[in-house]
Design a protein around this nucleic acid. Sequence first.
DNA 1: GCCTCCGTTGCATATAACGGAACAACTTGT
DNA 2: ACAAGTTGTTCCGTTATATGCAACGGAGGC
Lengths: 255, 255
Amino acid sequence: MGEREPALVQSVDRAITILKLLARAEMGVTEIAAELGVHKSTASRLVYTLQARGLVEQHGERGRFSIGMGMLQFAGTVAGQLDIVQVGNPVCEELAERLGETVNVALLDATDTINVSQALGTSAVAAQNWIGQRTPSHATASGKVLLAFIPPGELDGLFVGDLASYTARTITDPQKLRDALKEVAEDGYATCFEELEPGLHSIAVPVFGPGQDVIAAISASGPAYRLSKKRIPEVVEELRQGARDLAGRMAYVSR
Amino acid sequence: MGEREPALVQSVDRAITILKLLARAEMGVTEIAAELGVHKSTASRLVYTLQARGLVEQHGERGRFSIGMGMLQFAGTVAGQLDIVQVGNPVCEELAERLGETVNVALLDATDTINVSQALGTSAVAAQNWIGQRTPSHATASGKVLLAFIPPGELDGLFVGDLASYTARTITDPQKLRDALKEVAEDGYATCFEELEPGLHSIAVPVFGPGQDVIAAISASGPAYRLSKKRIPEVVEELRQGARDLAGRMAYVSR
DNA sequence: GCCTCCGTTGCATATAACGGAACAACTTGT
DNA sequence: ACAAGTTGTTCCGTTATATGCAACGGAGGC
């Protein structure tokens, strides 16, 4: 409000909403229609269009719909644009093997943190897929690292009101977050113990670019009982080595 | 024709076309409009809608547009659905390191072959990104492997007329393709020497599932002068080992 | 066997997407 | 330095087009 937002193209906007819904879970036409608040026939046509172009697929003849393989084409393009995705993969793999936990490389996008590379831990019980996930920066280890190292001042506008809460331990007070970030900047690493999901711990360190700037964060995450506070020194050490490795490879790649 | 095709939702169809265009190269609004055959204003609105939802991004304030990081979310979903993407990554990495060439895992989708996992070779000169790429099965090593091992009869409907040609060496005669596939089935590997792109060689082997069925192909590709015919035995041996490794890991994953 | 639920298809209507033109912000040329 | 040529965005009237309705055809369930 105030700012005159140009109108969105309605049907395209709805189609994208459908894609976002299907990214969460596979659904049927009726269910989609209900979620969008439109008639079945409208939803049916939109889905048909998406399907005809390979962006969604239906399982079986009269089955439910899910994201299709045609989507990989776009993912590949993004990955190609971001050298760090390519370069990050082998580094993640090696770290995941050494630590036995899931390792991710993440970038900052406004107030969200996006995971762009991932390798699953060897003891991958209930392994979750984080690739492409947008996570709230104030409730993740990677996010805190990325926020802690951005140029001062850029943080000011963001994080004003109370922050979204996910568990009892989530930092919701902007001032508390600022304090935490200062500490992260001093320590050179961040932790996130059950602040996003109960039972989920993660530890992250920054990846430095050619200058002083931080270009990404690299993190390890795992169940609370395994990735305990006692392991912080060991994990941080491994992550830092991986970060240096990644930084080196990036420097090599970027002409 | 004959078959009554339900009508597509026009604006959604156009939006998807825009995405496919941007997947090839970044473009400006005017250029997009010309390509679509619509007015600038129409293209502008479509792009704005895509941008508002994070599917495209613009470089700089008045810069050109490209696929946005929001796409990664969908990629993650697809990757999560297909266990083989996750599991394939480390196998690719290891093979790429041993062979020094780019290694891919690919799946069959109708007559196309889609690359789902990739690791760049160490000597990655002019490294191309194949992830998510749809390639014609009859002109790739992975594709030939996948076609050679599908249940007999399923092939009949497809590949009837003359096949699309990409170089002078592309197999365009359906009968010749059938002969070649039979040979692939006997040898247990396929090659593709400059049949898709001049100067591009690739070698592929099948990845077997729990039964006799082939669930994927794994391939190495590189410049003709480096990935020569003489290296076939060595490369095939390495690939087969990787394929066994991958099959083993898949068996472990799929409950 | 009937009944319910789901997805698709004509059809008429009204909305919303479109093209035209004018505008504003940059870049290029001379 | 100014003009001429871009490029992308916005306003507005019109008509194409996306939509909702209702009826249809299949699948499964009781």
